[in-house]
Design a protein around this nucleic acid. Structure first.
Lengths: 333, 333
DNA sequence: CTGTTAGCGCCTTCAG
DNA sequence: CTGAAGGCGCTAACAG
């Protein structure tokens, strides 16, 4: 049934060398003469040999396998642009680096205890984890990271250690900047700030940025928690926007919720978002926001994970962000 | 470094049985007495043993690995709701079935020749492929399927054979029905139909459905190809909508493009879509469309692939669809 | 019903 | 610089 049976042994015979020599050229070992290297490569090409990853992994105990752990809405048919961008960025970079990435959703492992998670990933021969959006309540997942069983890269969460790196934009600065730009030259003083999660790392940083600006400009800011929920933002807007001059949200999705609410309320208030998702382009007129390049962030995370797996030690990585005004025609062209 | 070194051998010793016996209970072989099964399971639990998938795969030549092959926009930060739904549906079902799914994007393999693709997947120990949206021009990918090297499930493309199944909704019927419902009781006779790809399988079927209805109702339909591009649909709308009564599109994204164009043109024409993506809810007022459950489709594809890998023979599977009117508040709640 | 024995395809010392 | 030999952890006949 399977005629893929050309193995390293065949290559060795074809090239007239030992099986281990082939292995050495395959793995770019230093001490092989140019001449034999040549012979081997010719044989490989001639036979169309492709090394068996499974066997290599078993033998070397290095699988090059990593899991991308994502939080995805469990509801049917919802828009999940950010996770998708993470997936694309990570998978493409992984291919480039010869790594193997499997995608895992929070919901799939939510019920597990730390021990079970460890076993789950071990049974999958996973060596590294890229975890997106770990929050403070995720004690189990945090325990997983701290178990030291896996190399980890945490996107949007702190936790640098010997075997774990953290990667994120400067949320405090970004929120400060975008709000500053948004308010610049206008006379808004009463602001509704819709924050993210109560115990979220990025939410806190963004809130800090907002507070710093508020202090500098002497703004009166009403802070409410929207849990990154569009619906919650909608409700908060309906409840509080009337008496405010402008609305600043810790995410685009919430900004959209706010904007749609304002339309339904039939009043106008400027809205500022955060993330730079293309969905923004669909939801209304152009809007100030922070643009994160999620693909690039994921790609960097893979790169960093690869470094950790090679023996590197954890570090903190800050990615750049941009301030933009997003509008529909930018999105589709 | 890695203390995961408890192997089947240790379990065997602990349980006082042979190594192969352990393997048998692990793989649920029939002929093992309840008693020894019990002993073995106790030992497994005691040692916290977790079988090494890699070794099992190498030995049995069965990896349970499959690739989900997707077409994703190469542009930065675009909305990719449908692929994301496929991923979620497939991965969740795969976990349930103990399979291992890797995601592969068209762009990653686009340049390859059939031989290279085969080797690429073989080197990854992939046994099965789920291919989404194979089009007629994808001769290489088609060649891959026909090579017979892998079990395949084709989403939205025909090609049933011994080792390949096809899974899709009844596009002809769906397009007929949604257009019929959309037009019902109204007096529209001049229609702009924005079709999908020139050589796409589903596009053709949908077009057939539209044509059948047109004939029955005596409609005058102008057919233009939008390539499933929002921008193209926008341009076509600007060009032709003025003299039409209504616009029917072969996808929601194109419907959105049409709708936005109409707004910019400052004229009103009803628009009908296809797919049921939540993005629709953001783009405007409610709109008639066909709702496909992409998650469920992907889950069924995984199930079908698993059947094929077990030795089953290919078949054609038709999934249900629903006619809906989608609106913003449905999407966010 | 249980144990023995070969490998799966490759990597990796260790001699030559 | 090259080759021989011994596994990695598990499965799958085949004996018992």
């Amino acid at each position: 049934m399977d005629s893929n049976s050309v193995s390293i042994r065949d290559v060795a015979r074809e090239a007239g060398v030992a099986i281990s020599t082939v292995s050495k050229v395959l793995n770019h070992y230093p001490n092989v003469s140019e001449e034999t290297k040549e012979k081997v490569n010719t044989a490989i090409a001639a036979l169309g040999f492709v090394p068996n990853t499974i066997a290599a992994a078993l033998s070397s105990k290095k699988t090059g396998r990593a899991a991308l752990v994502l939080d995805v809405n469990r509801h049917a048919q919802t828009v999940d642009e950010i996770p998708m961008q993470y997936i694309i960025g990570a998978i493409n970079k992984a291919k480039e680096k010869g790594m193997d990435i499997i995608t895992v959703f929070f919901t799939m492992i939510a019920e597990m205890r730390v021990e079970e998670m460890i076993r789950y990933f071990q049974s999958q021969s996973i060596e590294g984890l890229i975890i997106c959006g770990l929050s403070k309540e995720d004690v189990t997942l945090r325990g997983l990271v701290e178990s030291g069983k896996f190399k980890c890269v945490l996107i949007d969460a702190p936790g640098v250690s010997e075997h774990a790196s953290s990667i994120h934009i400067d949320n405090e600065k970004a929120q400060y900047e975008v709000a500053a730009k948004f308010l610049k030259g206008r006379n808004y003083s009463k602001i509704l700030y819709i924050s993210g999660k109560k115990d979220g790392y990025v939410s806190e940083e963004r809130l800090n940025g907002m507070n710093r600006l508020a202090q500098e400009l002497g703004l009166k800011v009403l802070i409410r928690t929207g849990n990154f929920s569009e619906l919650a933002a909608r409700k908060l807007t309906m409840q509080y926007a009337q008496s405010k001059d402008a609305i600043i949200c810790a995410s685009d999705l919430m900004a959209i919720g706010a904007m749609k609410a304002l339309i339904d309320m039939d009043i106008y208030r400027p809205v500022c978002g955060f993330d730079g998702v293309s969905l923004m382009g669909y939801a209304g007129k152009q809007m100030h926001t922070v643009r994160q390049d999620f693909r690039k962030i994921a790609a960097s995370a893979v790169e960093e994970l690869s470094r950790l797996m090679e023996g590197g030690v954890g570090q903190d990585i800050v990615m750049p962000h941009r301030l933009i005004r997003m509008k529909y025609l930018d999105v589709i062209s």
